[in-house]
Design a protein around this nucleic acid. Structure first.
Lengths: 343, 343
DNA sequence: TTGTACGCGTTATCAT
DNA sequence: ATGATAACGCGTACAA
């Protein structure tokens, strides 16, 4: 009994045209197809044409998995951010991604939800894709996360914060300094009473604590804080002002919010309560989101150059990938207090 | 002269511990390590322990590229959305990603910037990673894009719109219907004069056109439109109301905005001009973003169940990946007009 | 329960 | 300018 040709036991129906197939059609070997794609100059114009025709005809799309496996370069960058829906992070990562894309890299993005355990798990998953570099948000990571990263031995940039001991490189600003600066600024403007509204974000809390300490130091006024217990939103800001007023004895003064969104909520709630801004309550946001200048009155805030942050982080990674050493492994981009009409 | 061992010409310093290495340390072969990871039940408890110890000791992270190449399953889903910073899309994709993650898939995300050419290029790049499925936003794609997708022969879901001829599956709602519904709703409320404010988004424009046609049909009022010529924002909304009033002769009536953000801008600008909402101008947004209910007055809008959209799209893909056939290849999720205090 | 052999589709090296 | 060949690190089939 004749043995039948063994069937492919593994029938997947996905795209199956390979460089070898393209090569056959063009009358060359697989290697030449590979060369035609990566070093067109090293292939004769005539074969190049035939290969391109064959690619067109077959709809060939190179298999980047195989390429990465063979070359040990995935052209993949991995990024972990706390939240996709928080525009502060998404706008930053959009810049970062575009910068990377223009250099031939794709960015694999995941949300950690501000959770270090989730981050750790994601780091492992991401590393399994063998990224050429990785971006993390913040400087606090689980011990295992650090171990994994160190073991992976790829460029890593931590953003939105600064530290003397980055895993590899870091780009951001000092949150405690920012909190203190706002305290000093408000005090300098004559404010003697202040409250804070803070979302549940560790960096926001550090700003708040620094603000409260410094403001107390300067004015002797104990700063009441209302923590939203969740992500920043306009609704959370309204609730928090209510909380400050109704349960924490806040009557008037300045309010430092951990985000512009909260500040916006404060403005709405204040108006609804018949309180004037900045007459009865002054408000300072954080982030200088684009709507801040468009509110009425325009919102005072702290500007972080998010786009620059994205670019600097991307450049740092690209530099290290190229084998270089960045001038500084820690870049403090600083911040800027923007005075508008709410203080 | 003795031949020296050939050097690895290809020194990359990245993580190089393999299953084979783990196997050596545990005293088993590479396959057994592979099995220990994917089918722990098929490995004796004792070797399983030794393998796990070895993994722990070496910090082994499996190479998903090699795995995908061998198994023809990448556990990667690719998604293309117009904008990362537009919360309407980012909140949807966050749900989608989380849903996929919980099923063992990672999502590779890119922004098209509402540009079909950019989309086409991104589709090719994404396909090179051999995703197990793909998500696209919208139903209009370049001919080449369709060709690529069809050739890739993977599940595809198109979201945020519906059509009778999806590439594969589609989940969304009918934009023209939504525009008409708002026109009818406003007319039913007694409005006889209306304007529109529209961002430069093809779907938004389709809603606007349908709205204008229907409203004219019902009331005889010619609907003036102000197109923002860019993405939606509060600032754009303020400008557009100004434009409507100062250059298009709009004095009072209802305004249908293509997004809640624009509507919010309209409310701010109206107040700044001493116009009352909804007394002088009534406003309807689109999207029901979470802040809509927190504005003062609360914003009327059209709700799209974005989270459900993300879940349904994910389930559709998962179903097809599992080899099943979804009950319906086109799912119309509809929309809901939410009346709050601005109309 | 475990191992051997092979193939996945590409890049790198060396030879022609 | 082009090709042959050997990795790359893992899954799958099959044998032991």
């Amino acid at each position: 009994m004749p043995r039948m040709a063994k069937e492919r036991s593994h029938e997947s129906s996905k795209s199956r045209v390979t460089m070898a197939a393209v090569g056959r059609m063009a009358g060359v070997s697989q290697v030449t197809v590979s060369r035609a794609l990566s070093h067109p100059g090293k292939v004769s114009p005539d074969t190049l044409r035939r290969i391109r025709d064959a690619i067109e005809a077959t709809g060939f799309v190179p298999n980047a998995l195989a390429g990465a496996l063979a070359s040990k370069r995935s052209n993949l960058i991995t990024a972990l951010i706390p939240s996709l829906t928080n525009i502060v992070y998404s706008s930053f990562v959009a810049t970062f991604s575009e910068h990377m894309r223009s250099h031939g890299y794709q960015v694999l993005l995941s949300e950690t939800g501000f959770d270090a355990q989730a981050e750790e798990a994601l780091i492992a998953t991401h590393l399994s894709r063998r990224p050429d570099a990785m971006l993390l948000t913040g400087i606090h990571h689980s011990a295992q996360a650090r171990r994994l990263l160190l073991g992976a031995d790829i460029p890593v940039v931590e953003v939105w914060d600064v530290t003397d001991s980055p895993i590899d490189m870091c780009v951001g600003f000092n949150h405690a300094e920012a909190g203190r600066a706002v305290a000093e600024y408000l005090h300098g403007l004559g404010h003697r009473c202040a409250g804070t509204i803070t979302a549940s974000d560790a960096r926001a809390v550090r700003r708040q604590v620094a603000f409260a300490d410094r403001f107390f130091q300067l004015s002797g006024c104990r700063v009441e804080d209302s923590n939203t217990g969740g992500p920043a939103s306009i609704g959370a800001g309204r609730k928090a002002l209510t909380d400050l007023i109704e349960t924490r004895g806040f009557s008037s003064g300045a309010i430092f919010c951990s985000s512009d969104l909260l500040a916006h909520g404060v403005m709405i709630e204040a108006r609804a309560r018949g309180l004037s801004v900045p007459g009865d309550v002054s408000v300072v946001g954080f982030g200088d989101q684009d709507f801040a200048r468009d509110l009425d009155p325009p919102l005072s805030t702290v500007r972080i150059d998010r786009l620059r942050l994205g670019d600097v982080a991307a450049d740092a990674l690209l530099c290290r990938i190229a084998g270089g050493t960045p001038e500084k492994s820690v870049v403090d981009l600083g911040f800027e207090i923007i005075r508008r009409a709410t203080i």
